[in-house]
Design a protein around this nucleic acid. Structure first.
Lengths: 236, 236
DNA sequence: TATAAACTCCCCATTAATGGGGAGGCTGGC
DNA sequence: GCCAGCCTCCCCATTAATGGGGAGTTTATA
């Protein structure tokens, strides 16, 4: 499909985050649907979002902490495949009130959300939203679901380029022994056990831990292990 | 492309893990390349693989612990987009020896690997491998890269279907306070500081840490934080 | 409206981790 | 040939974490 290629090429040319905002608008118009939204979240809250939802709704959403109620977020967080909103669990009272409120702010009743995960626990959602009946939506997804997935990944690729390229390149290199030490500690070994495993004295092991701590800018062992894991330096 | 649709439909009909093995063989033949491999590592460290590499090479690979040397694994772990093996860092001596040995076992010199991440820290790789010159391979990827990405995700979807019952649903749910506690510890806060931040007594905080430890099957705090991170329960 | 799960607080004794020192041998690169 | 970085070993005193108890109050949901 030529149009898809064109949209993706345009996306790849984006040079700043604001361009992603434009891209969501263009996609919405191209597909003739109510909304297109790309956003990523961490455990603390929203980091970045680009989309066509009204700013009133976005403000309201953040203010009320709907991140922890929204079945789309909660459901997608433990799923791998894209989900049609109909498949989600809307049974709790909080969820139903949330949905009614969303509709009131111009959100369509149908939605298709694609979860995308990046390195170091990064997590993003790409959503297509529309106001129509079930059959129409099912046909739309059957026709465009695969393209939307490709687009979702292109969005995330671009977002990661902007946001984490710098962060990843800043990660310090640990020496082999330091990496081993971090790995054993991440596995729950005590310093004594880890030293035994590495066939060195516990004193020596401590030197590695200290060195790794300083390189990683960590204040204690747990912190150092957490950073090494997040940076992808070690795999448990 | 009709053939792609056919391959995917066949994949979706798979009812056991062994069928994924057949699927890799069929893909290899369809594209006329040397190897197709899909394998994953989950947060617990369990591994599963389906692919066309010789069993001698797979055994050798596991025996020598090449998971920690292989630039494909190391590189993809911190990347989001698919990578051509040429882009990876093969400069270290260990990597070069590893590569020579791989070739000796029938692995092609060109590769394209797609990292795929699922819930709870699940991480998989889908690799297309061939023996040819750079130009031929670049053209092959330009023509089929996008299809390979869709296929990689279908593989992972299927694998998660099989495994989700056992491995992923085993990931325990932590309560909000337990998650907060783990998060502060991962940030390097001492128990005293974390308790202060959460506005509870240190004694109470300890209860959360203990609870989280037991739920995560961890032997100490560092282990618990590492598991929570690997499982994607918390993000620092 | 029962009931489970989450949240909060406290004690005592023991073990593990940390901070800050110093010192010698080995290897690879400029 | 020299220097940086890595690997190895050791001491002492202090602080922090752990193991294993018990017990009462909310809160959400079946």
């Amino acid at each position: 499909m030529k149009t898809l290629e064109y949209l993706i090429e345009e996306l790849q040319r984006a040079e700043e985050l604001a361009h992603l905002q434009t891209a969501t608008e263009r996609l919405r118009d191209h597909y003739g649907i109510s909304h297109v939204v790309y956003h990523w979240v961490n455990s603390v809250g929203e980091r970045f979002g680009a989309g066509t939802y009204s700013s009133e709704w976005v403000d309201r959403y953040l203010e009320k902490g709907y991140l922890r109620i929204d079945p789309v977020i909660v459901g997608c967080f433990q799923r791998f495949s894209p989900v049609d909103w109909k498949q989600l669990d809307w049974s709790s009272r909080a969820a139903q009130e949330f949905f009614r409120e969303a509709i009131g702010y111009g959100v369509g009743n149908q939605g298709y959300t694609i979860p995308v995960r990046g390195p170091s626990g990064q997590f993003a959602l790409f959503t297509a939203n529309h106001d129509c009946n079930d059959d129409t939506w099912t046909r739309f997804i059957a026709a465009n679901g695969r393209d939307l997935m490709i687009i979702a990944h292109e969005f995330n690729r671009k977002a990661l380029e902007f946001e984490s390229a710098s962060a990843l390149l800043r990660t310090p290199a640990l020496s082999p022994r330091e990496l081993s030490a971090m790995t054993y500690l991440a596995k729950g070994y005590s310093r004594a056990r880890a030293a035994e495993e590495m066939e060195i004295s516990e004193h020596t092991l401590r030197v590695y831990i200290e060195a790794a701590r300083h390189k990683l800018g960590a204040v204690n062992t747990t912190h150092a292990v957490a950073r090494a894991l997040s940076a992808g330096l070690i795999i448990v």
